[in-house]
Nucleic acid binder design. Structure first.
Length: 502
RNA sequence: GGUUCCGUGGCCGAGGGGUUAGGCACUGGUCUGCAAAACCAUUUACAGCGGUUCGAAUCCGCUCGGAACCUCCA
């Protein structure tokens, strides 16, 4: 079996993945800016790297996963002169900035948990690393690759190009083209008088009197620039050189390009050796984004309360849906895709449900071991999750045939499958199949009793051929989200989008 | 204007010079009082035009269409 290959944005190609210090892997992912609720697009990126982390772990690597919380420093416009987003939100809502940060951080964690996106090993905040950021700015200044103007510090891209070089290597741009682009009237360059060159960017910004998030620094009161936090925190926790850096495509330029330049300027090393970028989630062909005004939030999906949606879908359904496109492709969000995901998930859930009850005999008429390899191969090939899902379902189809006595599986294969399949689904794909523990056991028991009573009443109606009543009971239960299913063994019920309760 | 990417059957989406992706939906069948679920069967696609090749959806060129980045955004 081939080893793991990952697409590296630096080379634009898939490369064999070789960690610097096996079995350890350092993974850094740009986290959310906590001035708003995370939307589905954000979730997609964090899901991508959740699965990468899970897969690396499965392969036996010991992953240190650092995903930051940006709680300061991202400005409103490109002039390096706008208002801090968190500060703005705080002013609008008359809150202390850290109240804004706290609120959306908690909300972010809640969404991550529901989607079963595991917490990172370290979740550092920008405000918690002001000192490290200042130190990094000082080092860049010492190198002569930055300059101070009026209490602000700017990265000197031209000097960097002359002495170090490689600005634009990640995003595939040339410095003069950036200026040409600027000249084409596509962006306004007002308020950039302090910069020596339009491509220069702020490392530290002087705080205006009304700016509420501010810290003392060698250059006066101010706040860190847009990109320095990730350089500072990745260097602190993973080293000047580490394995993988991930984030959304939209961060490739300028954020990651600047981050890389800062690393090179400060430590002489570019930080990560592999840059991975996860593509955008689109809605009706357009990128989902806060500024596009078409953002969908996880709560819209979970509640079904959205014009695009016919009903509510569970977090796992959403997770599975987002797993249906390769991370480097855009994924168009549609209700049909959610519906399809819901059905497939039910299929997986069912297969895991009957797996323990199967009996093995004779010789398998399906090569389970090469099937398992094919799942691994898919994930090893630049984390091809959708292909792995497709192959998973193919395997489940054979399993259904076994369950229906239309195919055979040897005892040996069955035993292997029993230890492999649930682990693969839950540990690698991160699909929570087990019904979540009820928050109120006595309420659940009461529900069980009531359902038992209803099913009994309906069956009495059926025996007396009162099908009108029987169907009415079934239909009206369905309307409140409870599905009845008749079989030879009797009638079972389940809540929409969860496993069978019986 | 610059850079890059994409265009696959009713829909979503893998793959990618010669062999079935998978799923959803549809249709027929089994099962059922009827449904639902499940199982079986079935549907045969790669934007258009030209080129390379024994052979192209897959490589090259052009055309058309779409998207992303160049500005805070996952």
């Amino acid at each position: 079996m081939k080893g793991l290959r990952l697409h590296n944005s630096l080379s634009g190609d898939k490369e064999p993945f070789e960690p610097l210090h096996p079995p350890f892997v350092g993974l850094y992912v740009c986290g959310p800016t906590v001035y708003n609720d995370v939307h589905l697009g954000n979730c997609r990126t964090f899901l991508t790297f959740d699965i990468l982390r899970r897969w690396l772990t499965w392969l036996g690597y010991r992953v240190r996963y650092v995903r930051n919380i940006t709680d300061v420093g991202h400005l409103e416009n490109d002039a390096d002169d706008g208002e801090d987003k968190i500060g703005k939100k705080a002013r609008l809502e008359q809150l202390e900035p850290m109240e804004v940060v706290q609120r959306y951080t908690v909300g972010f964690h809640e969404v991550m948990q529901r989607l079963n996106i595991l917490p990172p090993s370290i979740e550092p905040t920008a405000t918690g690393h002001i000192i490290e950021q200042i130190q990094m700015v000082e080092k860049i200044l010492e190198q002569g690759l930055a300059y101070v103007v009026n209490g602000s510090v700017y990265f000197d891209v031209q000097a960097f190009e002359k002495r170090v070089g490689g600005y634009g290597a990640l995003s595939g741009r040339k410095l003069d083209e950036l200026i040409a682009g600027a000249g084409a009237g596509r962006r306004t360059l007002e308020g950039q008088d302090e910069k020596r060159h339009p491509a220069d960017f702020a490392l530290w910004k002087k705080a205006s009197p009304q700016h509420i998030m501010r810290w003392p620094s060698p250059w006066g009161e101010g706040f860190p620039g847009w990109h320095i936090e990730c350089s500072a925190m990745s260097t602190k926790y993973l080293g000047a050189e580490f394995d993988i850096h991930g984030g959304g495509f939209d961060l490739k330029f300028p954020h990651h390009e600047c981050e890389r330049a800062q690393n090179l300027a400060c430590t002489g090393q570019g930080g990560p050796r592999y840059w991975m970028h996860s593509n955008m989630l689109t809605v009706q062909g357009k990128r989902m984004g806060k500024s596009e005004g078409n953002a969908l939030w996880p709560r819209d999906i979970f509640s079904g309360d959205h014009p695009l949606l016919p009903r509510a879908y569970s977090p796992m359904t959403l997770r599975y849906m987002m797993m249906q496109a390769h991370y480097r492709s855009t994924l168009d969000f549609t209700p049909d895709a959610l519906e399809a995901a819901d059905k497939n998930l039910a299929k997986i859930r069912e297969a895991l449900g009957f797996l323990p009850h199967l009996t093995g005999s004779g010789v398998s008429d399906f090569s389970w071991s090469s099937w398992q390899d094919s799942l691994f191969e898919a994930l090893n090939d630049d984390l091809n999750v959708p292909l792995a899902c497709a192959r998973l379902l193919e395997g489940l189809k054979h399993l259904h045939q076994v369950a229906h006595k239309q195919a055979h599986i040897s005892e040996e294969d069955l035993e292997a499958l029993r230890s492999f399949l649930p682990r693969f689904v839950e540990e690698v794909l991160g699909l929570q199949i087990q019904a979540t523990a009820p928050s109120d056991a006595s309420a659940l028991q009461a529900l069980e009793n009531v359902m038992g009573l209803l099913i009994q009443l309906r069956n009495e109606a059926r025996v007396s051929r009162n099908y009108a009543l029987a169907d009415q009971i079934r239909d009206r239960l369905q309307k409140v989200g409870i599905q009845l299913a008749d079989s030879r063994e009797g009638t079972t019920w389940h809540l929409q989008g969860s496993s069978s309760v019986s």
